[in-house]
Amino acid sequence: MRQTEEDRKREQERAERIERAQLKDVKELMQLPAFRRYARRYLTLCNVFETTFTGSSETFFREGKRAVGTTILGEIMKIVPGQFAQMMAERMPDDEPEPEPGSDQ
Results as ranks from 00 to 15, higher is better:
R17C: 01
Q83D: 15
E96N: 08
R40F: 11
S103R: 08
F49S: 03
A21H: 12
K9Y: 11
E75V: 03
L32Y: 02
F60E: 10
R14W: 12
D95F: 05
I72D: 00
P93I: 01
R66L: 02
E100P: 01
D104P: 02
P99C: 02
D104L: 13
L29Y: 08
L45T: 00
P101M: 14
K27F: 10
A15V: 11
R36C: 04
T4M: 04
T51C: 08
G55M: 09
V48A: 00
T71L: 03
K9L: 05
I72C: 06
L73W: 04
E6P: 00
L23C: 10
G82Q: 10
G82S: 13
M87I: 09
I79E: 10
T44M: 14
R91A: 15
R8S: 13
R10K: 15
E5K: 00
A67Q: 11
L32R: 15
F61D: 10
P33F: 11
R36V: 05
E100V: 15
Y42Q: 12
Q12A: 15
M87F: 11
D25L: 15
D7P: 01
I76T: 04
E11W: 09
E19V: 00
E50W: 10
R36W: 04
E96H: 06
C46M: 03
R10F: 06
P101K: 13
C46V: 01
L29N: 14
E90I: 01
L32G: 05
T4N: 05
R14I: 07
V68W: 04
K9M: 06
F60N: 15
P93N: 03
G64C: 01
R37V: 00
R14C: 00
K9V: 05
F60R: 13
G102C: 09
R2H: 13
V48E: 00
K65F: 12
F60L: 12
L45N: 06
L43C: 03
V80C: 14
E5G: 02
K24M: 14
G102Y: 10
M88I: 12
R66I: 03
E28D: 14
C46H: 02
E96Y: 05
I18T: 08
K24C: 11
M88F: 07
Q22L: 13
R2M: 10
Y42N: 08
D7H: 12
F35A: 14
I18M: 02
V48K: 00
Q105I: 07
T44V: 15
L73Y: 05
L29G: 04
D25S: 12
Y38A: 02
Y38D: 03
T51P: 10
F60I: 15
S57K: 11
R8V: 06
Q12S: 13
R20P: 08
I76R: 02
Q12E: 14
R17G: 04
F53V: 14
G55H: 08
I79H: 08
R10D: 11
F49A: 03
F35Y: 15
M88L: 03
Q86G: 04
E90F: 09
T52C: 11
Q22R: 15
E6M: 05
A67V: 05
Q86E: 12
L45S: 06
R8M: 11
M77K: 14
Q22H: 07
R37Q: 05
